[in-house]
Write a protein that binds this DNA or RNA. Sequence first.
DNA 1: AGCACGCCGACT
DNA 2: GTCGGCGTGCTC
Length: 828
Amino acid sequence: MDHAPISADREVKLFAEVILPLALPVNYTYRIPDSLSGKVVPGKRVAVQFGKSRLYSALVRRITDSFPSRYAPKEILEVLDDEPIVNDVQFSFWDWMASYYMCSKGEVMMAALPASLKLSSQTQIVLNRDSLEREVTLSENEALIQQVLQQQQVLSVRDVASLLNRKTVMPLIKSLLDKGIVYVSEQLSQGYRPRTAVYLQLDPAYRDTEKLKELYQLLEKAPRQLDALMTYMRLAKHRTGWVPKKDVAEESGVSSGVIQALIEKEVFHAEIREVSRLAAHETGFPPEGNAQAFSPAQERAYHQTRTQLQSRDAVLLHGVTASGKTLIYIKLIEECLEKGQQALYLLPEIAITEQMTRRLRARFGNQLAVYHSRFNDNERGEIWKKVSQGTCRLVVGARSALFLPFQKLGLIIVDEEHENSYKQFDPAPRYHARDSALYLAGLHRAQTILGSATPSLETFYNASEGKYGLVKLPQRYGDVMLPETVVVDMLRESRKKATHSHFSGLLLEEIRKSVEQRKQVILFRNRRGYVPLLQCHTCGYIPQCLNCDISLTYHRSSEKLVCHYCGYSEKPLASCPACGSHHMEQKGFGTEKVEDELKILLPEVRISRLDLDNTRSKNAFQQILNDFEDGKVDVLVGTQMVTKGLDFHNVNLVGILDADSLFRYPDFRSFERSYQLMVQVSGRSGRRTERGKVIIQTTSPGHPIIDLVLQNDYDAFYRSEIEERRQFSYPPFFRLITVHLKHKNEEYLAEKAASFASLVKSRFGSRVLGPQIPLVSRVRNLYLRNVLIKIDREKDSLSKVKEILGVCLTEMRARHKSLLIQVDVDPL
DNA sequence: AGCACGCCGACT
DNA sequence: GTCGGCGTGCTC
């Protein structure tokens, strides 16, 4: 420094560590060119070249001055943002997520940023006009692009590729950039385009009432146009007010051509205006009057919540359906906003955000924004900005809303905490929004409310152990009645010959009654397929999976024996492969069989089925639900799926078939699901004065858990559930780690999965509680083979597990580079 | 993720 | 003899 004063200012921060939007294990370092020094700041996006030809917008993580000795860093090409788009808290959150869910920071970044903020092949290039005056030697293709750009202003990288009909187009663009022919479009940094709408105004000439009358008469001949005009008059507050054209069209039901005719007649003036997307959603929801008053029970629950929050960061609000949790949320949000902080309201599914938004909008108006993946990128970009600026104080959203750039978050509400759609599955990070919310709240020193009528086992456990506060709201509005619960002893019934296949006489009778009353029925059976187990009557042989030590389930619809763990399937055999006997016994029954037999017993009843097997295609799930909700189906037979996303308003009967299997290992969730079903049905039917009915068919009617259900003692039921699992040395608080192995070659994959499993086993030793289950499912044309590791979640366990698993992963990756390995951490 | 390189079998 | 598939390695 003393000897080279010139280098003094070069000595300052020269390199930037950036996160690339890829699944790369580490961050990469780029040189900050002199021209950009000072502009490169953590949290801003920069355009960088990565590899030979690819351009990415990367996110600056930190600035360093240490010269990387192992490689020659490339330069940052451009800074894309004037201000950081990601703040420090977010970075901490990302870091945690990457480490907790064992994925790369790039993958977290991909999940976190709305599409408008991450760009890759959509990168736009524009012509540098100055370059036209210069003499530059260009290749044929380069000249072509230059030519096209003279006419077309902007081209995306993809456009260029299709224009030249080739894939490797980046070097060409790089060369064009180097030669100064093009530059990266500013649009790249713009992020989003504002939304516009056409607004209508009545020509001021018609302010005069006489003139207006004339106009009405004139339009007698054009009734549609008159309709449009009348609608406008109704919608406009003043005679010359501006009204969105779309509103007029929708309200009056006329086509836009009709309105266009009125514009041409100069009855209306049209103007294109920029509209805020947030405001667009606000229209139509005028603020409703005052806050509803608390009931005494709500008042009590509210004060308990406040008290609990003084000593704890999170509270479980355990309130039965329709007990008025929302009002308590609203009050807590109000207080949070009054303190000048932001609040986040998480909902498990986009579908139910609508009604909740309405309610919250009435209270919080335009301080509120809705954020989920159904919104287009531009809208999401706008909300991102508003949250960052603090203009938007309350966000209602699905799990992706966790990633918004909150400045000072004071409260997170996780509603319907038990819903498993809070868990992200396919692309990494495979995060659980509830767990992540708790961590995020910790970073902000914010408070978390977990709300549910039927809390998940793990949350209930945490609350009963004192980790979270616990507030109950057991009373319902209008003293709603619980459903009548009837236990049918199937052994006794069958001895009395009162059963028809798997149905008790009572259940069949009740189904018939419900259908007659035009009510609907849900039948819950936690086994899919036709028969879960076949056995040779002569020698006792049971067809089993080659990979997994479980019996194969017979599926009649596909005529196959299928392994429900790994997906292996084979043709059913006419005779026993062990002894040749033709007498194969069918043991047990699945949803397919329930559906089949019910169709025979009650041919006039419309029956539909909802389970994994018939919802494989994209819309099938929604289609079946819609048909049920529209009343096209009387009885819905299904697995745990029936507890999700259903509107129960017309359901007055739930049948739980073979309740015994619900208590048995290894059905972690089955009982929970059937309980949810009961609670929900009772909640909904309770709103209307009538009482729903639940019929539990079991062979062990004296079972303590069934007794608890009959007493409707939810807490006791859960405690006993926890106790029971402990007795089995099978704690309820597991961590399931799934390792996804992806490869195109199935045999190769099977082999690697086996070797990975044995590697894990040798490292984990006794910590592997469950079997290693290879699970193969077809994902696009890749195969996914999972290794499940169940681990006791003691205090030190997770970090230890991760340490060991980390070693296994590294070893495996080092040995088989072509194998894609990803890890999924489940809450239970 | 993409892309290049090198190794194999299968073709004009 | 080359073409092209697939496994492997690498990208600041």
